[in-house]
Amino acid sequence: MRRKASDYFTGYLFIMPYVIGAFMLFIIPACMSLYYSFTRFKVISPPMFNGLDNIRMLLADQLFMTAFKNTWYYSLIYVPIQVVIPLVFAVMLSYSKKLIRGKWSEWLRAIYYFPAIPSWFVIGMVWIWLLAPEIGIVNQIIGWFGKSDIAFLGIGSDSIIPSLALVAVWKGLGYAMFIYFIGLNNIPDSLYESAEIDGVNVWQRFRNITVPMISPTTFLIVIISISSAFQAFDQHFTMVFNRYNKYSDTHLMVYLYEKAFRFMDMGYASLIAWVSFLCMIIVTLIVLFLQKRWVHYEE
């Protein structure tokens, strides 16, 4: 009995750091943030409850609407591509194992993963120049096939959000590809072998065996991609907002940052945070709800 009591004590003592952290960094902040959403709070004076005023302001706020639309547009391009392309690459990687073996295959994976590591500041800055009109490498390469002078990241241009989404796919490709690759290795070989006897081609193999069998991994990648698309602050700040302080191409997170830390409008910014959180949750719930239709689980 004594032993048990001292076990309890040690247990609570050991988890103390996390309990303090959970209260200080999660529970209390989440409650504060919810309350602030219904207040006028500009830091210098204490928060004042103003009911639904923030929501009314939000609905009339053109800049918010632009950022809201941009965030959805960005996510709608980024998520599907980030789900499909890494899968295709992972499949190609598993084919290439016949030509590129052992250590080399590991290095190939490592090279693909590499862009995920450096800060968006570095990646963003480099891509701004690579995508520059005329002198950018991408325009130079397209130029081999004909004259090209596309301002991919031009202010307010139609191509800016798709370009951003594609750069994000480039950065995240190796990570998702690696997760898929692990999933591919768990597909039983017997399935492929019997398919081979039936003489199916590469596409049929991919369509009828790989895609259904890998679907639990696909589901994981969908969820991860949704959450990173809605929280893509670093990229949008570096590649768009840091260059010119205009709101036409902002992401919700950047707008939230501006409202909170430049204009010190904490109440309104908290509401934006909850709105973007809600969008993310709704999309995630829809995906969860639809998973029965397409995710194939092993019995």
């Binding site: 200080m24 602030y36 959450s227 929280q231 910014a269 908290s270 945070a273």
Partner: peptide
């Protein structure tokens, strides 16, 4: 701990700043 992973940083960021 498992649930808190799903809570995005933007929600806690502003109160953390004030704390």
């Amino acid at each position: 701990a498992v649930i808190s992973i799903f809570l995005p940083s933007q929600v806690t960021m502003i109160p953390q700043f004030l704390i």
